[in-house]
């Protein structure tokens, strides 16, 4: 697809300048009008062979979702700034050497995108195997939170067993936290940072942060303490955006019959 030729204000002024030509000639006018029409056309990307219009600023993921494509994600929450850490939303873009994360890639006019080639589906499966290998369990009680089934559903869908990369694990649960509402079961954490981001971007609390990196990564609060001694207001946003149930509705699990969970001190 040909690149759009934009007419800049300066060019437009030159083309229209009476001092050069007295008046705008017919061919000049046609040229101007053609450029204006072209620049006003909605830009398009080719998505799995189909043309999709988009608004400048939209990401490839947003366009694909709008087109009804199912692109898997784990670190994505539509309310938050795209983060691009889970890489599950990778897509192939013609001319790009490697697949790109569609959630952080802005759509560009003429882009040719393939959302579910055998190559990216294979990558997604490997990524899910890596993620699942770190977790004590993948299938968790749906009462843990609204988004708690996301990882389990994808692992099942991609038949991504957790044995291939079994070994080191990141994140350690905090059963010592006595608060009655939020279970901090970081054994299930996949470091997607959704809790950290929702706490900052949506709630404005900045109570949760990340300590260390790599396998030593741990979601924590200031000084590694308990939630009730932090800036946490127990709004539960982190619980409801967690895609693995690592942060869970402790009260619901207790009400549903888990006698091991305390009711607070």
């Amino acid at each position: 697809m040909a690149a759009v030729q934009h007419v800049s204000i300066r060019e437009f002024g030159w083309l229209c300048s009476p001092s050069l030509s007295g008046e705008v000639s017919q061919p000049q006018l046609q040229q101007i009008m053609a450029s204006v029409n072209q620049s006003q056309q909605q830009p398009k990307i080719t998505l799995d062979g189909e043309q999709m219009e988009f608004s400048p600023g939209e990401t490839v993921y947003e366009v694909a979702t709008r087109a009804g494509k199912t692109v898997p994600t784990l670190c994505y929450d539509p309310r938050l700034e795209a983060f691009g850490s889970c890489r599950l939303c990778v897509v192939e873009v013609a001319g790009q050497r490697t697949p790109v994360a569609s959630c952080t890639t802005q759509a560009e006019d003429g882009m040719e995108v393939t959302t579910a080639s055998a190559k990216v589906e294979g990558l997604r499966r490997t990524l899910l195997e890596l993620v699942a290998s770190e977790n004590r369990e993948v299938a968790v009680d749906a009462l843990r939170g609204v988004a708690s089934q996301e990882l389990g559903t994808l692992v099942e869908q991609y038949d991504a067993g957790c044995g291939r990369f079994a070994g080191a694990q990141s994140g350690a649960s905090r059963p010592d936290d006595p608060n009655p509402f939020i279970l901090r079961d970081y054994d299930l954490c996949i470091s997607c940072y959704r809790c950290v981001r929702v706490c900052a971007e949506q709630e404005g609390d900045y109570a949760i942060s990340i300590a260390n990196r790599g396998f030593a990564t741990q979601i924590t609060v200031e000084f590694g303490g308990h939630l009730q001694d932090s800036a946490c207001t127990f709004c539960g946003q982190c619980v409801q955006t967690c895609p693995t149930g690592a942060l869970a509705d402790k009260k619901a699990l207790r009400f549903a019959g888990d006698g091991t969970l305390n009711g607070g001190s």
């Binding site: 009462l143 939170g145 509402f181 709004c235 409801q240 009400f255």
Partner: peptide, 30 residues
């Protein structure tokens, strides 16, 4: 409201709720 045997066991915020779009405070949530 999530209920079992006519008793509330959990509250899930509504992500399509026009006033809160998935958000709740500690009172509504717990």
């Amino acid at each position: 409201l999530m209920t079992r045997d006519n008793r509330i066991i959990a509250v899930h915020p509504a992500f399509d709720g026009p006033a809160n779009q998935g958000a709740l405070c500690v009172k509504g949530q717990f």
